[in-house]
Structure formats: structure tokens, C-alpha cells
Write a protein that binds this DNA or RNA. Structure first.
Lengths: 261, 261
DNA sequence: CGTTTGGTTCCATTATTTGAAACTTAGTCT
DNA sequence: AGACTAAGTTTCAAATAATGGAACCAAACG
């Protein structure tokens, strides 16, 4: 509801509607949307019509329900391929997955949330959008904390303001104060841990991917379970993870314009 | 460029700009976009600003270039997960890939183009250009023809109008007439072939995925190379592919509302 | 068969978008 | 340096597109 705040212009409203449909996670009727949008009936109607006409939504004529359109998938493919991190990082993720035998995550920051842009499963092969595109909280994940720890003070403040600080497990850092203290430790140490803060039994070691100028590009993590390994063992991989992160950063930096290399 | 035609309203224009950035495939400067858009400077400028502010684009401040934003990846994940086909089809694609040992494609129709929504690579990867989110032509691919063959006359007309009929190989059906004749044969036969019409040496057998009411939901194909197999051998799999397509269709139909969370 | 619910269209009002032109940098050349 | 140029940003009155209250239509309901 009030969560969205300032939707600038018509475009903002349209995108807001798009998000609303996305959030539902399944086809929605006009009235469902009307109930939770605070746009007047006619406005919402025309917005939906425009988006549908544009292929961003599809209207199932039988059910009278709207769902996200395929045009988005096409756009996202382009987004993924052209974001400087994900496509470059691919071979490095493979390498890291093979060397560690664990699950690898590559994440970026998106409005205070962690957005997973790629993943390697311990056993299974690449699954494009099934995994990439998922979002998670920043304050209780390894990649989230790794990125936050190297954010500028202003940026960090904004991100912290967007955290829910829900107590997912009894290890969860559930206040901004605890988190800030942890971030300091992470910066000093050079890598972040997830000590079962998000899910019971899931631990990870994460490092940031930084540009030469120190800007946070993303984060890389190796995830495992307490059943299979320990934090200490994971920390043993920290050097390797950092090396890979550095390689990704270096290549991301030099890759900017493929035509002029 | 007359190509875009009717961009209805501001939203349409904004999405048009988004597509323009996507088409470039790499970060673009303002002036690059200005050169090929026929929007006036100020208009384009504000459009870009809005999109950037909305997270659909990101502006690299150092380079002064725009690229697609991560918000799109997030939206696309939702789009992928909520399109009735792709997530449902996943286990079936695995099954088909395992049974045939060949490359599997799952595609949907997007404005006259084929949009690949999922893929399984053969053990020996046939290096083709398709991955989830990628698009391809409809008139010279197995999945494209399989879907077209079951489209309503009106829908088919629209799709045909959007084909380029470029002669990719000397097998390519390069006129609407040849294509329409082929579609009739496909409908009669129940499955479509790609006889090296798009890429030399690449062949496939494709079937449509149809809803109970006969609407085209997508298409499923098994792709291989002339080096490894023959069309006749592929046709031997047609029954299997059809069975799988039918299973996917059935589940898609019954799945409409997966009550979750 | 009257009523409710869900969706679509009207249309005068209003606010937003528009785009030529002016302006500001930042970069290049002489 | 100073003069020129290219690239990006801002202005402002005019034009246009979005708005939303209300009327309308069509099923489904009781």
C-alpha cells in the first residue's frame, strides 16, 4: 500500500501496477488489483489495458485474469546479458562450484534487497530464470551483509531503512545496531558469514565484488549446510572466493565496451 | 524508424525506449539513443530519467551510459514463475532430455517471434543460439511453425505479417505461400520439422502445446544435428514428444491457482 | 426479476507531457 | 589561453494525454 511512495508520472504508476501483478505470483482479476491499488477504477483499468497492449501483461480471456507478459522475459534476458556482472562471472562461478563442490550464489543489490543474478547448484546444472531473479533480505544473508559492509554511509543508511529485521532464526541480527557492528567486523575481516541467520542449518561465506574505485558491484558466496561442513571449514575457502571475486571485478572493469578492447 | 508504429501513451514510449536500450545489448550513451529514436531531445531525456529513477535502467555515472536495470530481472523471474508453462514444464523437460539425449526447447509466442522460455542441453552441447529469454524467428524454426500451425486464422495472419522471410539457408521457406502450405502439412501430421531451415546442420522435431480449448500455449522441440542423427530418427520420437506436451498441457490447465503461502 | 458484483466506457476537467530553444559543461582545436 | 564544438541539462508556454466521478452494461445471484 503506502510502501511504494512516490510513483513519478504515468510511467511510474504503470510500473507500480506491473509490480503489483508480479507480487501476486499468480494470475489476478481486475477487482483483486483494484482492491489493493489506490488508483481509481478507470485509471487502473486503462493502465492495465496499456500494459496488456504493450505485451508487459497478458490477459487470459477465459478467466479474465492478468499475468506478467513474455515481453518481460525477453527484456530480462537482455538485462541479464548486459549487466556487467552476471555474464562475465559465469565461467568463474563454474570454477568456484567445481573447486568447492558447494552451492554458489552471485548477487547484486536492488533497492535494499539482495537480488540473486546467478547460481550454481552443487549437483544440478544451470537453470536460468528459475533461480536468477529471486530476491532475498540483505540483513540476514551472507551476500547481503558482504555488500552492505562496503556501501557508502549514505547508501548504507538507505538500505538499512529498508530492512525488516525479522527474526528468522535465533541467530538473526534483529536490530540495526547489531547489524552495524557486524558490518564493521566484516569489513575488518574481509568476508561475511551467514551463521544460520536466515535459515536453520544453512551457513555461508560471502565476499563483496568491488570496482577499482571501491564501488560495490555485487557479492559472491559459497553456501553449505551445518550437516555437511562447518563455518571454520568454509572460512578456509575465503581466500579462494576472494581471488575469484577479484578476477570477476577486474574483468567487469575492463569489459565495459567490448568493441574497443 | 517507422518500425515501432503505435506507441500508445507515455507508457508505450517509455517501454519503447526500454526496448531500444535492450536492443543495443550494451551500455549506451544518451546521444546514441537520441540518434535512433525519433523523440525530441528533451522528451527522450526525461523518459530516460524516469526509467532510471524507477530502476528499470541504471545510469553508470562514470561513463554516462544507460543499461537495463536489475528490477527487470526481478520482474522477469516473477514472469517466468507465473507463466503457466515454464515452471510446470520443468520436470517434463528433464524427462524428455534424459530419454532422448538431445537438446530440448520450450518456447512461447511473443508478438510473432519465438521466445525460448526454457532449455535443456544435450550432454554434448549443440552450440546454438537459444537460451531462456532469447528470441528467434517463427517462420523457420520447428517450435515457431508448430505454434503457427494451430493458431487461429486471424492470429496467424498477424504473425505472418511480422515475419522477415529471410533466407537463412537454402532450405528456408522464404515466402508466406510456402509457409502456409507447410503449416497445413504440419497440422495434418501433428508435428513440425526444422529441416535445416534456420541453421545449416541443425534439425528438429517440434509439437505444439495446446489447451483443452485448442488455444496455443507454446511448443516443445527436440533438436539435433545432421551429423548425429536424421529427420526420420527424430520423427520416431514424435510420439514421445507429443505425450510429454500433452502432460504439460494437462497440468497447465489444472494448475491455474496453486494456493501457496 | 430485481439486485448485486465485476468490468467497461464517457467526457469535462486537470495535470502532465511536450519540444524548441536557451543554457551549461566538458572537451578540442588553433 | 581563447574560440569553437559536442553532449547533456533545464526552461516554459502550448498541446496533449491522463484523470476519475459517474453512468453503463452484462453476468451471476437470490
Amino acid at each position: 500500500m503506502g510502501a511504494e511512495g512516490h510513483a513519478d508520472g504515468t510511467v511510474g504508476k504503470a510500473l507500480d501496477v506491473l509490480d503489483m501483478v508480479a507480487r501476486h505470483g499468480r494470475p489476478v482479476r481486475f477487482s483483486d488489483l483494484l482492491a489493493q491499488a489506490d488508483y481509481p477504477k478507470a485509471t487502473l483499468y486503462r493502465l492495465l489495458q496499456t500494459l496488456t497492449h504493450q505485451g508487459m501483461l497478458t490477459l487470459d480471456p477465459d478467466q479474465g485474469t492478468y499475468a506478467l507478459g513474455v515481453r518481460l522475459v525477453r527484456l530480462a534476458h537482455a538485462a541479464w546479458a548486459q549487466s556487467s556482472l552476471a555474464p562475465i562471472a559465469r565461467p568463474y562461478l563454474d570454477e568456484l562450484a567445481e573447486k568447492t563442490g558447494e552451492t554458489i550464489h552471485l548477487a547484486q543489490m536492488d533497492l535494499g534487497q539482495v537480488l540473486y543474478v546467478d547460481k550454481r547448484n552443487a549437483a544440478k546444472p544451470v537453470e536460468m530464470f528459475a533461480q536468477a531473479g529471486k530476491v532475498g533480505p540483505a540483513y540476514c544473508t551472507g551476500v547481503g551483509k558482504a555488500m552492505m559492509a562496503w556501501l557508502s554511509p549514505e547508501a548504507l543508511e538507505q538500505v538499512i531503512a529498508r530492512q525488516s529485521f525479522l527474526r528468522h532464526t535465533d541467530q538473526t541480527l534483529d536490530t540495526p545496531e547489531k547489524l552495524v557492528a557486524e558490518l564493521q567486523a566484516i569489513r575488518a575481516r574481509g568476508h561475511a558469514f551467514d551463521r544460520e541467520e536466515h535459515e536453520q542449518g544453512i551457513i555461508c561465506c560471502a565476499v563483496p565484488i568491488l570496482s577499482r574505485s571501491g564501488r560495490v558491484l555485487g557479492a559472491l558466496s559459497v553456501t553449505s549446510t551445518t550437516a555437511r561442513t562447518t563455518l571454520e571449514a568454509l572460512e578456509g575457502q575465503a581466500g579462494l572466493i576472494k581471488d575469484i571475486a577479484a578476477k570477476i571485478a577486474a574483468e567487469a572493469e575492463s569489459w565495459r565496451f567490448p568493441e574497443q578492447n
